[in-house]
Structure formats: structure tokens, C-alpha cells
Design a protein around this nucleic acid. Structure first.
Lengths: 195, 195
DNA sequence: GTCTATACGTTGATAGAC
DNA sequence: GTCTATCAACGTATAGAC
């Protein structure tokens, strides 16, 4: 039941945000009264933070698996696959939608804890991708391009796709991805201009 | 007083969102009681929607001016200037912060009106930029690159910078911009790969 | 663990004196 | 136009029966 409540909370929080979500609505999704939530969680904040921590560790795990799984692929296929995986994940799991919303607009009274956690999360993603770009640099796959620069640009691409998923739909996100990816990839392998 | 209330509402809504904002908090910012708001607006929705419409038309005006002002510049300086203008605007005006938040996470009961309005807004930005890319294509500034593709990728870049402003700060947004811009610009002018 | 009953604060909103 | 007084509705949270 605890698990069912957390899943319902994930749906409600990701759709309506912390302030827009009510315990009554969450309890209702699993056929309980709102008071029963207090048998499983200390309160709204406790429920929210448990969903929060679970979602972010799950999302980091997914990325690790994604990168490990594409270890044998070319840089092109690896990066392109990661972008695609965001679109697929956003469709099939609520987690990513929740992670994005709480990253951008955390409830103010929980800001400190959330900021610390998401900061570490982001840092780990950064290092995960950076390692791949360093490897590509050693293999000569990104020419004279600085791995750090490549990484920042790639993560910008990831965010741009996620944001398109948030405010429109899969189709537009795919169109944006194709366009931005083609230019990113050509730019990554071009000889850097010194302008 | 109506104007002062709208400015206070813009601050509160952009910081806390629709659900997280209270009329008491808004009235307090201008030294009024919450009941006095009803002498100027029909209610919370009316106040929110007036701020909403004003913000989006202002933001579109800003972009038009920005593009008109950079009419004589090279494509490089024009696009780069637009990116910079987002960072500057985000720092000095609340409007952009509000526009982003309400675009991504509109209050559900106002979704229809907001979606219609932001959709038109986005379409006009799209056409504004596209016209500049078409001009660049005619001048041979983007080689064989399709103006539509260039435009989609550029708007992705804009969003990536805005999102960095939302969840971190000016400095990180500037670093992201420099990295993503350098690769975007080189990719835009590279000969497209047919992979 | 789930329920009913209840407490208590805050919210958006209205009525009416000044 | 702004105020005081007031309201109903909904929010989170607690106490106690079963």
C-alpha cells in the first residue's frame, strides 16, 4: 500500500506540482481516505521527499545503465541513443516528468534539501557524460574540440529536448531533436572557429 | 494602484507559481489588504490572466525590437546577440521568468486559454526567426543548411539557455551559452553530413 | 491499517461601513 | 477605493473506534 501511494503521489505531483497536489487526491487514486496516508508517511513533505529521492536515484540508475549498455557503440550512436532514451523514458515513466518539474520549480520550503540533492545528481550526470567525451577525445572522434565544451553543449541539447517534452509532445520533441542533433553533430566534428 | 498590483503579482507568480501565490501576499507587497484587490480585479484568475497576457505581448515586442535593431548585423552577431539578450532580460525583468513558468506548468483550470495564447506566441517567434534564417540562406550564410532546421536548432538553444537560468544562475547560463553556441555555429556552417 | 470525527489554519471571495 | 467583518471551502494534520 505504501508503494501504491508513492506511485499515485508520483502521478499527482508530476501533473499538478507540490502546491497543486492534495493528499485527498492522492489517497483517492488508490481508494483510500486522505487520513490513511498518515499511517504510512509522516505527512505531505515526507511523502513528497520519499518520492523525490526515489525518482532521482532511479533516473541516475537509468542513465548509468544507458551508458554502460552503449559502451561498445560509436560516439555518434551512443549520444544519439541517449537523446532518444529521454523521449522514450518520458513517455513510459512518470519519473522524468516529476524530476524535471521539481528541479525547475521546487517547493520553496524544501528548497535546501532539494537543491543539494539535485545538485549532486546533476554533477554525477556531468561526470558520466564527460568521461565518454574524454574517451572520444582520446580516440580522435571530436577533433580538437574540448571535451568539457562538448559536454556542456550536449547537456544543453538534452535539456532542450526535455523542455519540448514538457510543454508540447513527443512528435515536436522528435523534430527538435533531429534538427538540433544534426547541427550539433556536425559542429562537434568541425574544426573550431576562433572568432 | 492597479499597475502596482500587477507588478507585485508578476513577482509573486513568477516566484511561487499560481497555486503557491496568495492574494494576501500580493496585496501585502503594495501595502493593501487582500480584499482591496477585488476593487481592481474580478478575482485571482482575472489578475493572473491580465499579468499573463501583458507579459507575453511585452516579451514578443522585446524580441521584435531585438531583431529589428540587429537588422544590419551579420547572422553571427544577430543570433549571438539574441542569446545574450535572453540572459540580460532574465536578470532585469521578471516577465521572462513568469512567461517560462506559465508556459511549462500552467494552472490546469486555465490550460485552454494559456495554451492557445502561448501557442500563438511561439508561432510568431518561430516566424520571426525563420525569416532571418531564410534571409541568411539567400545570402549563402548557412551553406546548404535548411532554414527550418537551423531555426528549430536555434530555438532549442534559446530554451536550453533559459532553462539554465531557471534552475541555476547567470554564470552557468553564460558558460552553457558559450559552449553550445560555438558548436551550433560551427555546425550551422559545416557541410551537412548525410548519415 | 483504515475508518469517522474533528480541529485548525488559510484560501478566495462577498457585504457593507466609511 | 480601502477598510473591517464574515463566510464557505479546502488544506494538512490528529485522536480514537474498530
Amino acid at each position: 500500500m505504501s508503494q501504491a501511494l508513492k506511485e499515485a503521489a508520483l502521478r499527482i505531483f508530476s501533473d499538478y506540482g507540490y502546491e497543486g497536489a492534495s493528499l485527498a487526491g492522492i489517497a483517492d487514486e488508490v481508494g483510500l481516505k486522505k487520513q490513511s496516508i498518515y499511517a504510512h508517511f509522516k505527512g505531505k513533505d515526507d511523502l513528497f521527499l520519499q518520492v523525490f529521492r526515489h525518482s532521482f536515484t532511479d533516473e541516475l540508475d537509468r542513465l548509468r545503465r544507458e551508458l554502460q549498455h552503449s559502451g561498445c557503440l560509436s560516439l555518434h550512436d551512443c549520444l544519439y541513443g541517449i537523446l532518444q532514451s529521454y523521449i522514450v523514458t518520458y513517455q513510459s515513466e512518470r519519473r522524468l516528468k516529476f524530476c524535471l518539474r521539481v528541479s525547475f520549480y521546487p517547493p520553496p520550503h524544501l528548497y535546501e534539501e532539494i537543491d543539494r540533492y539535485t545538485g549532486e545528481h546533476l554533477q554525477q550526470i556531468h561526470e558520466l557524460f564527460l568521461e565518454r567525451f574524454r574517451e572520444a577525445a582520446r580516440a580522435g572522434d571530436i577533433g580538437q574540440r574540448d571535451p568539457e565544451t562538448a559536454n556542456l553543449a550536449f547537456m544543453a541539447l538534452v535539456d532542450a529536448i526535455c523542455i519540448e517534452l514538457v510543454y508540447s509532445d513527443k512528435e515536436k520533441a522528435e523534430r527538435r531533436m533531429e534538427a538540433a542533433w544534426s547541427i550539433f553533430w556536425d559542429g562537434l566534428r568541425a574544426i573550431p572557429t576562433t572568432e
